[in-house]
């Protein structure tokens, strides 16, 4: 454990981990209940496009070399989130179409930038799979700022976001500005994804938003508990994943996902053991409890 206190880069990684162990699952709760889990994948891939773009540009523009590619990733993710929101309005009946459209454009563009930037290098590999030595002081500052932003937005708009997640039409009729709230939410999600990926990796970042929530769904009895359990699972997965990754000398993203999967499996077992029935929407008897 001393290593984590002794070395700056490890300390940065741990603090970053604790922060995203909170923000990712908290936003994930809203994303999962709105059945938009795949959007996180689209956003993480567009972040990769931004990073590849930065690596490509920094070959010719020397001013960029000192800057973390994460910022370019954030810009791309935010722009991508706006595009997704726009596409969801174009295809109201097929909202999930926004995901493959953005995902394939992101990968297509990303691959072009990567080949222009002389193919895969060590930097890019770290962003794909996550690494605890990838977190710089700059990155930590970005994560801290975004965590503060997420916390403030949630404190101010928790009620509105909950209502929109539960029933968008009804929220609109109640006078909640649904369009601007959706926009705010998706930009927030894009920023959290962009900053989480150094630790977890682009290919795995969506798991940090969905696996803890999937575990919480098994045990939570209310929406409030959903947050509580999601954050507990998220934090446990990040911290245990990082520590084991360091000592086993393997990818932190992989270990974090394995830890989250283990907790998800435990939650399923717990539910089964506690005898709580698995709920099937639409299959309940109309008069069962009258």
């Amino acid at each position: 454990m001393e290593a984590f206190i002794q070395y700056d880069f490890l300390r940065n990684a741990v603090i970053t981990g604790v922060l995203i162990g909170f923000t990712a699952p908290v936003l994930g709760v809203f994303i999962v209940v709105r059945r938009l889990a795949l959007i996180t994948d689209a956003l993480s891939h567009i972040t990769l496009t931004g990073i590849a773009f930065h690596l490509f540009l920094s070959q010719t523009l020397s001013i960029l070399t000192g800057l973390s590619p994460v910022y370019m990733g954030m810009v791309f993710a935010a722009a991508g989130s706006l595009l997704i929101e726009k596409l969801r309005l174009v295809y109201t009946a097929y909202q999930e179409l926004a995901v493959p459209i953005i995902l394939s454009s992101a990968i297509g563009l990303g691959v072009i930038f990567i080949s222009l930037a002389d193919g895969f290098n060590q930097d890019l590999f770290q962003y794909l799979f996550g690494s605890i030595i990838a977190v710089s002081r700059d990155d930590l500052a970005a994560v801290a700022g975004i965590t503060a932003f997420v916390a403030v937005v949630l404190i101010l708009f928790y009620n509105q976001l909950l209502f929109i997640a539960f029933d968008e039409n009804q929220a609109r009729v109640s006078g909640i500005p649904v369009k601007s709230m959706n926009l705010l939410f998706i930009i927030m999600t894009a920023l959290v994804i962009a900053t989480s990926m150094q630790l977890v990796g682009i290919l795995l970042v969506s798991s940090l938003m969905t696996l803890p929530v999937a575990a919480a769904l098994q045990v939570a009895k209310s929406f409030r508990q959903m947050f509580m359990y999601s954050v507990i699972v998220g934090e446990s997965a990040v911290i245990s994943g990082m520590i084991s990754a360091f000592y086993l000398d393997v990818s932190s993203g992989g270990m974090i996902v394995l830890a989250a999967l283990f907790l998800l499996f435990s939650a399923m077992m717990y539910r089964r053991a506690s005898g709580r029935p698995v709920y099937h929407p639409g299959r309940q008897k109309e008069t069962a409890a009258e």
């Binding site: 209940v33 009620n159 909950l162 539960f166 029933d167 009804q170 939570a220 209310s222 959903m226 639409g282």
Partner: peptide
């Protein structure tokens, strides 16, 4: 406004009766 049942509501939503009713106060 009470919308047509199950039209826009996700009934697998992990919320209690209390939480659902409290939404009516949000505006």
């Amino acid at each position: 406004y009470v919308p047509q049942k199950a039209a826009s509501v996700n009934l697998g939503f992990p919320a209690t009766v209390y939480e659902v009713v409290s939404m009516g106060l949000f505006s």
